[in-house]
């Protein structure tokens, strides 16, 4: 079982869980509710920039933010990483890209998985759109992945 010179070490499986339910509030809640309904929202920051995902407070000034606006759902890849060997938790079961995606009408980007098939199909600046889950529950995973916009 082991080549450790100190001999076998007893081990037992352990799954860490933090099985809390959270109240998501008017901003995060609005984002998650929109995902369930199949669209994306952001929020206007103090300087007028549209932040996606929306934040409850302005990240620079700390001001409370309230003006939720619809964005996307198509967007632009601002950076990406090509995963050659997806792990068991990966959202796509073949090589894919993690990407930051700036939805149309937004000034910031959110994380998503782009199922592009091949690394040669990926580029910063490419247009992508979300693939929505059939059954949506108000979670970021309601977007199963993103794909290139045809044309």
């Amino acid at each position: 079982m082991t080549d450790d010179p100190h001999g076998d070490v007893l081990t037992a499986p352990l799954t860490i869980e933090y099985p809390f339910k959270r109240t998501t509030g008017p901003v995060v809640g609005a984002f998650l509710t929109a995902l369930r309904e199949g669209f994306l929202v952001g929020i206007k920051g103090s300087d007028g920039r549209v932040l996606v995902p929306p934040t409850e407070y302005d990240p620079m000034t700390g001001e409370d933010l309230t003006e939720v606006v619809e964005v996307g759902p198509a967007g632009t890849v601002t950076t990406w990483a090509w995963v050659r060997h997806p792990g068991s938790k990966a959202p796509v079961d073949r090589p894919f890209a993690w990407a930051l995606i700036r939805p149309d009408g937004a000034d910031t980007a959110l994380l998503g998985a782009v199922d592009a098939g091949a690394i040669g199909s990926m580029a910063t600046g490419m247009k992508v759109e979300p693939v929505w889950a059939e059954e949506r529950e108000g979670s970021i995973t309601d977007i199963t992945c993103w794909t290139a916009v045809a044309g």
Binding site: T79, A81, K89, W98, I140
Partner: peptide, 17 residues
């Protein structure tokens, strides 16, 4: 915990971006 952790991105991928 809302927008990123449910996707399980690994540290290497985030650093690669």
């Amino acid at each position: 915990p809302y927008n990123v952790a449910p996707l399980w991105p690994d540290q290497i991928s985030l650093a690669a971006m």
